[in-house]
């Protein structure tokens, strides 16, 4: 019987799931993903996790609990860096240890280190390390990895084409509603795990879509576009997310078709607190584009989010109608 490996539907799941899934399936494992984030998963995560952690890490704990009794092993890689000369949040580096020491009764944890700071080739080393639990033949692991990378590139391409992970993974065709209003172009910047987890962000993307907006995410912009802008910064960005977010923002404010920018951040996130402020300053200084920060935490009441979002959309539409001399705020 094949080994079942559990992947929590949380954190970098939204970034790397197609890669992981193909890799392990090619090696003959059965991949099980935890359920979509729910109130129960959130509650379990918050209850078990250390209090100082941010909401996404707490939710990750909930997903691990959701999986632990139905898999042979868990895949919790130790991410140090996912791009050359850049780091990511240190909580990713300690994640397997934190989870192991917080939750009891866990199956085996595969905690392969992924460190691409010096070279992207280290990804293959990580693949050999993770793959050895399933297969002794290095050539076979190499083949599985190559195929996984292909799937990952395809996934990135789909994201660039404007698809959202929810549409891709759940195989749902994006619903488009016929509506009289002119669609707005709203850029949404934030960590993948806040942006694409619809429980955490209270269905932000769907809400935007129903207020007739086209959504633009950082994933829809090419690395070249982003890097071209970040090269202009006086100092190199330290974080992978920071470079992409700031580069995207600088690119967006030069485009003429962006009606508004929303930054979604986790309360207490160190990376977000720097990057959001940097993005906000540049956008406010160099453009007239409306900008909104949404801070998310454990709230389940949606009123605060809805009020801000509605007012933001109203403000943009009001501006548009003034430019076209149409009646206001109707």
């Amino acid at each position: 019987m094949s080994i079942t490996i559990g992947i929590p539907r949380s954190l970098y799941y939204y970034k790397f799931y197609p890669l992981w899934n193909t890799f392990f399936e090619e090696l003959g494992a059965k991949v099980v993903v935890s359920d979509h984030t729910s109130k129960y998963i959130l509650d379990q995560g918050v209850k078990s996790c250390v209090d100082e952690a941010c909401l996404p890490v707490k939710i990750f704990h909930g997903h691990v609990l959701n999986l632990k009794d139905r898999v042979d092993c868990l895949f919790i890689p130790r991410f140090t860096s996912i791009s050359k000369n850049e780091y990511i949040c240190p909580k990713f580096g300690g994640l397997p240890d934190v989870v192991r020491n917080t939750l009891s009764g866990l199956p085996a944890v595969i905690d392969t280190e992924v460190n691409l700071r010096k070279s992207g080739k280290n990804a293959l080393l990580a693949a050999y390390d993770a793959g050895k639990h399933f297969c002794a033949d290095k050539r076979h692991i190499r083949k599985a990895f190559d195929k996984a990378v292909m799937c990952y590139r395809q996934y990135k391409k789909q994201l660039m084409d404007g698809k959202l992970p929810g549409d891709i993974f759940d195989k749902k065709a994006p619903k488009s509603k016929a509506h009289g209003a002119k669609p707005l172009n709203i850029a949404v910047i934030g960590h993948e795990y806040n942006l694409y987890d619809r429980y955490v962000n209270m269905n932000l993307l769907q809400k935007l879509k129903s207020s007739v907006a086209n959504i633009i995410t950082v994933d829809m912009l090419s690395e070249e576009l982003i890097n071209e802008k970040t090269r202009q910064l006086p100092k190199r960005m330290f974080w992978n997310f920071g470079r992409r977010a700031v580069g995207a923002a600088l690119h967006l404010l030069e485009r003429k078709d962006i009606d508004g920018v929303i930054f979604i951040m986790s309360f207490g996130c160190g990376v977000d607190s720097f990057v959001c402020d940097l993005v906000e300053r540049r956008i406010r200084r160099e453009s007239m584009i409306p900008f909104l920060v949404l801070t998310i935490d454990e709230h389940s009441g949606e009123a605060g989010m809805d009020t801000r979002l509605e007012a933001f959309i109203d403000m943009i539409r009001w501006r548009c109608s003034c430019e076209n001399n149409l009646p206001a705020y109707g």
């Binding site: 801070t295 403000m315 003034c322």
Partner: peptide, 21 residues
Amino acid sequence: QDSKIIILRNGIVYDFAMNTV
């Protein structure tokens, strides 16, 4: 329970903020 600041320019809402935490 909440406080807000609303900035208007040329007769339209230009920017706003609500208290956070």
